[in-house]
Amino acid sequence: MPVGSVTRGTTGTNRLRRVDRWIAAHPALRRADDPLVVDLGYGASATTPLELHQRLLRARPDVEVVGIEIEPERVRRAQLSARPGVSFLLGGFEVPLDGGRRPAVIRAFNVLRQYDESQVAASWALMTSRLQPGGVLVEGTCDEIGRVSSWVDVDEEGPRTFTISLRLASLELPSIVAERLPKALIHRNVPGERVHDLLVDLDRAWAVAAPLSVYGPVQRWVATIEGLRAGGWPVRHGRTRWRLGELTLPWDAVAPRA
């Protein structure tokens, strides 16, 4: 039997563009011998698996995307949209791929929001156990139109990084991401928790960088991230990723306190 619960199925065109772009640059995809990617819990339509495949083709022309859903009727409808390189299966966190294949990447977005925080670790462990060596689970959430997004990069040893991705053109405060944190963090945005400290410092750095807004929101965001780094936060990557509205940190920098 599929493992998991039926989600609301909310989906939409272009909603997952930010995480798709990040996956396209990930070494787990680019270096994979078998570039198989799973879109787990894609929802009420085939939109997000089809978009994911189209975006990843630029990085790996041989990429294959399999959409997996726990609700049979959603799978039946999605199969009408199958095309070369994109297929659909019934299943859940157990990731039941044909022939025992293992994915290089599992994207599970807006899936764990309905679960208790206590269930996250077991769900991560089950999904990552299905990955091929060097594979990665990308688990997170976003708003309905994809302007605010965050996710965790998880491998067989556990969570590795935490990423925020925001549409800068309309950004008022970076802490708006608090509403769209992954399940492992969303209830931890309280004083004394690391993710709360991050969002406080991020808003402060954004305010300090306000004079640079005359040069555009991208310049202001880059200065914000540089300010965070100068303040001791172990920021990953560089300006190429920052200019996309991204911020990535090691998981340990935001992990819940015991």
Score class of each variant (00 low, 15 high):
G41I: 05
G232W: 12
T248H: 03
L52D: 05
R18W: 01
L202P: 07
L36K: 08
T248F: 01
W124S: 03
L50V: 14
E246W: 00
R229F: 01
S87D: 11
V37P: 15
L202E: 00
V136S: 14
G100V: 11
A59G: 12
T11Y: 09
A122Q: 15
R236L: 15
A32P: 09
L181S: 09
T248A: 11
R15P: 07
S213L: 14
H53P: 12
G134P: 11
V120N: 09
R229E: 15
R21H: 14
L29E: 08
L202T: 01
V214P: 01
Q132V: 05
Q132H: 08
D203K: 04
D39K: 02
W251S: 14
V254I: 11
S165F: 01
T11L: 04
E69K: 10
A24R: 13
W124T: 00
T10P: 01
R76A: 15
A59W: 04
G67Y: 04
V154H: 09
L112M: 15
G216I: 13
P256I: 05
A24N: 11
G91I: 09
L198T: 05
E94N: 02
D33M: 03
I164Q: 05
R101P: 08
V3W: 12
V138W: 05
V138Y: 03
L52Q: 08
L202I: 05
D252V: 04
P2C: 10
R31F: 05
E117G: 02
A82Y: 04
L244I: 02
L126F: 02
S170H: 07
V120R: 06
R55G: 10
G231I: 01
W221L: 07
L181E: 12
I176M: 02
L80P: 02
R194E: 04
E246N: 12
P217F: 06
T248C: 11
Q132F: 04
V200H: 03
